[in-house]
């Protein structure tokens, strides 16, 4: 059984079909990239997979549970327990330091554990920046804090929305390297990106257009390492 399965999923706003009869299966431990132009349905798909929206039609099975039928409270619980979110704009709480930002996810999940949060920051190479506020961190460092926060509760899926959109090449490489390590450890990764270099690192890539999957490519030379075009 796939970890995530979308069966004939549509999201309709009046006349607009943001997603139009999309079917997709993501296996446990898979690294999937989702590409597509603006308005192609990427955000809608992210919202539905991230349990922040429900489809108008179809089934969305996450770990065997049809999240399309769950109420808002259950969706919050599923999101908290099974999904780690990474954002393009990092969305760190500006008055909490790096460590507290990571502990915030623990707070809503179970009990804040400073030792575990410090270990997560160590994994992303930011142990020495734990007490720094977001304003004292570079963009790359903020995104690494965001990654630490996403993985602190050991989610089934890490859902990243344009994770390298605001980063330079060096930080982009660092973040992709973190994804590679997470993938090696068996974490399922779904990365929405405009950046072909980031998408090409993934095991599989789908391209959305007008709410449908227009193209699907499997990376035969998957290494998990980013290759920048010169």
């Amino acid at each position: 059984m796939s970890l995530l399965e979308l069966k004939n999923v549509s999201k309709i706003y009046g006349e607009l079909h943001a997603l139009d009869d999309v079917s997709l299966a993501v296996e446990k431990g898979e690294w999937l990239a989702i590409m597509g132009p603006s308005g192609s349905g990427k955000s809608t798909m992210m919202n539905i997979i991230g349990c922040m929206d429900k489809p108008s039609k179809g089934e969305v099975l996450l770990d065997g549970v049809d999240i399309a039928k769950e109420n808002a409270k259950n969706l919050t619980n599923i999101r908290r327990d099974k999904i780690g979110l990474i954002f393009q704009q990092f969305h760190l709480v500006n008055y909490l330091n790096a460590l507290e930002n990571v502990m915030l996810a623990q707070y809503y999940h179970s009990i804040p554990d400073e030792k575990e949060a410090l270990e997560a920051l160590e994994r992303v190479g930011l142990l020495d920046r734990a007490k720094h506020l977001p304003s004292q961190l570079s963009g790359g460092e903020q995104q690494r804090v965001c990654v630490a926060r996403a993985l602190i509760n050991h989610p089934e899926i890490i859902l990243a929305d344009e994770p390298t959109g605001n980063l330079d090449d060096s930080n982009e490489e660092t973040v992709v390297e973190l994804f590679r390590v997470l993938h090696e450890e068996g974490t399922t990764l779904i990365v929405v990106t405009h950046d072909p270099e980031v998408a090409d690192v993934a095991q599989r890539k789908i391209v959305l257009r007008n709410g449908r999957i227009a193209k699907q490519t499997v990376n035969a030379n998957f290494t998990g390492h980013i290759r920048f075009e010169v």
Binding site: M52, T76, R79, R80, L85, H91, L104, A105, Y108
Partner: peptide
């Protein structure tokens, strides 16, 4: 508002 959205996105319930 953005922070509240984030808190809810990472698992904060309405009760929290």
């Amino acid at each position: 508002r953005r922070e509240i959205g984030l808190r809810k996105a990472i698992g904060a319930s309405d009760a929290s």
